[in-house]
Design a protein around this nucleic acid. Structure first.
Lengths: 342, 342
DNA sequence: GTTGACAGTCGAAGCGCTTCGACAATACCA
DNA sequence: TGGTATTGTCGAAGCGCTTCGACTGTCAAC
């Protein structure tokens, strides 16, 4: 493997000159630059990452902490992860994978051994144990998700409060009076995961504002659980005509269940999902939805982190605006028999 | 951040002695060892990863190439990835995430920059473009999956041929005469992904051996596609009584479709799945299945890799034995009306 | 009582890079 | 025309660690 010294010799310059050609940190004459570049190409030179990191105090590696916790929907996480890796590469960084079960320890470890320059943390809880550590740790970080107290931290996430509000507004606008929020598995609420809580908040606030009736329930990702939950919802509120779903894996089962209960979508029941666009598009009928722009969020997360590494002070909190796309699964509230005969 | 020099000074020894205490590569007197250890603890010393890597030519980082290709089932991949990360940590290694779309380039890059010591590659095709590179690249590697020509490479995977055979044997043993293989999305076959091909091979061989009738079809992961595919299968072979499924995301929809077609499982139709055990357990009825032991495979992959790094020559190919667990979804072949009235 | 062998420790070299200060050589201004 | 910037390059130091050879004692063996 060629070293910077080999390149220097080949080009007839000093090693430092090669370094400056590569980094662009000092001006180099065009002739020299070209000669060096030619030598780099000829020798297939690639700087040694460790040596570079040792000398420059920069490893050009980001850590990504991914959650492996009960109730989280894996494909969405992977979308985040992929976006992070892809974006990192654009800024010439690599990504080290940390599982959440190494927890706070893992963060300390990679920081103290200078393995990584910065860290992206996913799946933030309202009272996340990693938050105080992150504040203390002198390791640039970005959280995908907001803890309750985000003081001193940089966070980004979809505006889930607004997402829920948009759904409720949409349904209320269509005349629905009784709607339900079919949420994540209860484990996710119990952990006080930020996005689930905020969605619920937004739902409650919007329902109250519209003066309509809103039910909420968690839901486990199994066909039977969906059936049971929907039946329970309809028992509590037989005149339910709208459903907001924040739970990707149950979307398919939910539509089946409604079908088997003889409730047509959207004629008898409007369904709105908070999920990735392709998932919404893939259902029959195509679901009206608020998209979870995983790619955009992952990308922005990396950009924020890179700007931090460049010594800038990016905004502490970034809420990606929620956007509702009306498709085929939501329509005007049905005229209930009761209301016409009453 | 404390350096090895700080520790040495604190303990009153040479830096090299500290190094030897930490690595155990030379014998150290118990007193010295303890004194050094105490200093390490007192100062909270953690070796600098770059310096260590530079001096020792070992980064203690493995690369994991994960596929993000059409038709792959994400949760299973994540299980592999998690197992790899967790196992790697047990051997004091970290894991760098490479997306498959950086392809061969990415492998070359991390090797030439000495970022990683070895690499785990997932989602291997029969004629994988990375295989020749891997052979040439002087970078210890392990493939999860077998290319057609595995010469010179170390591979591990579930024995999918045997998995399919077990399924067919099981159904044939129950008297089924006409069975189908509901496979992965066609993109996976078109790429000639190893596991899908080998399952098909095993299915064909076993069906021939038993002298029974076997149909095969790919299937896309959408409710309608499942419906269409099953209908097509039943049109071609109305007396189909057994189904082998290798396609996790369609399992739920498949059971729905069979229900809606009035085919009871297992009375009218036996269903066998090749999928993770928890998925099989989570269905109603609980599915008879051949498990995909992602955790075990990921772990073994790391162990093989570590042994390679230790200069050993592990077996070139490891086939993890397939195990069939009979649950509630498979039963004796129904006596068809035709056969009783004929 | 000498000789080896071995355990335990040290110092120095070196891994491959970045970066700082120095130094020509050239350009620019009055 | 001299003095001051500016540009382009070099050499050396140093990042924090591992590892090699060398050195000093001890102890067993003869």
């Amino acid at each position: 493997m060629a070293t910077i010294g080999d390149v220097a010799r080949h080009a007839g310059v000093a090693a430092s000159t090669v370094s400056y050609v590569l980094s662009g940190k000092r001006s180099i004459s065009p002739e020299t630059r070209q000669r060096v570049q030619a030598s780099v190409d000829a020798l297939g030179y690639r700087p040694n990452a460790s040596a570079r990191a040792l000398a420059s105090h920069r490893s050009n590696v980001l850590a990504l902490v991914i959650p492996l916790r009960a109730g989280m929907h894996v494909p969405v996480m992977m979308q985040f992860a992929t976006a992070v890796v892809t974006s990192a590469r654009r800024y010439d960084h690599d990504v080290l994978l940390l599982t959440a079960d190494e927890g706070a320890t893992g963060l300390e470890r990679v920081q103290q051994s200078a393995l990584v320059d910065a860290v992206v943390v996913m799946d933030i809880e309202l009272h996340d144990e990693r938050v105080p550590l992150l504040r203390a740790l002198d390791l640039p970080s970005i959280l995908i998700g907001f803890p309750l107290d985000a003081e001193g931290l940089t966070c980004i996430d979809l505006d889930f409060v607004r997402a829920a509000e948009l759904c409720v507004d949409h349904l209320a606008g269509l005349g629905h009076q009784r709607i339900g929020l079919l949420g994540t598995p209860s484990a996710v609420y119990e952990r006080q995961t930020g996005f689930a809580h905020r969605t619920r908040e937004g739902f409650r606030a919007a329902v109250a504002r519209h003066g309509i009736h809103g039910l909420e329930t968690p839901c486990e990702p199994a066909h039977e659980a969906v059936m049971a939950t929907v039946e329970q919802l309809l028992r509590e509120e037989p005149e339910l005509t709208g459903l907001v779903v924040q739970n990707e894996p149950i979307i398919g089962p939910l539509l089946d269940v409604l079908r088997s209960l003889g409730r047509r979508v959207p004629e008898d029941m409007s369904v709105l999902a908070i999920c990735a666009d392709d998932v919404a598009e893939g259902q029959r009928p195509r679901l009206s939805s608020v998209a979870i722009p995983a790619e955009e969020i992952g990308q922005q997360a990396v950009e924020l982190l890179i700007s931090k590494l460049d010594g800038l002070a990016p905004p502490a909190g970034t809420l990606v605006p929620a956007v509702l796309t009306a498709r085929a699964s939501s329509g005007p509230a049905p005229q209930l028999d009761r209301s016409t005969t009453a």
